[in-house]
Amino acid sequence: MKKIILTAATVLLATFVAPVAAAQAAQPIELKGQVQLDKIVVENGHEKHVLVEPKVVVPGDKLIFATAYRNTGSVAVSNFVVTNPIPAGVALAQGETPMAEISVDGGKTWGKLVQLTVTGPDGAKRAAQNSDVTHIRWTLAQLAPGASGTLSYRGVVR
């Protein structure tokens, strides 16, 4: 009985200590993901976009996936590349991501949408479309200590 209590206490202690050590030593970068629903509400006869917590989500809904980053360390990091696979049930929304590169082949090759092609089931190549995008990534050359920001993309539930 005594042993069990001790074990529980150890776990608790680990919970307190481990992340602090990880964040400061091993992980100077913090990434925090968030998703919001871009909902159109009609107010006084005018359509208005509001960003809400996605409590109810159905096909066709517009979602905004955001990843907040922060350099929590004391030294600058470079070649900071954030990669985000697009979830299977989501298609990249139209006309987005001017700052990002995308991939339509699971992250093997990267570029702008207009540069990319997809091989169809019949073997013929065609221009890639938003719905073909499998990954999106952002590259920041330098991230100073304390620097932070948010990278986001818009998606539509397929």
């Binding site: 066709g60 360390g73 070649n79 900071f80």
Partner: peptide
């Protein structure tokens, strides 16, 4: 008509960097 009801949409980002 869209993704099946009950499907989980899960989004995870990862980052690489040089320090």
């Amino acid at each position: 008509t869209g993704v099946s009801a009950g499907t989980l949409i899960q989004n995870t980002a990862s980052a690489t960097y040089t320090s």
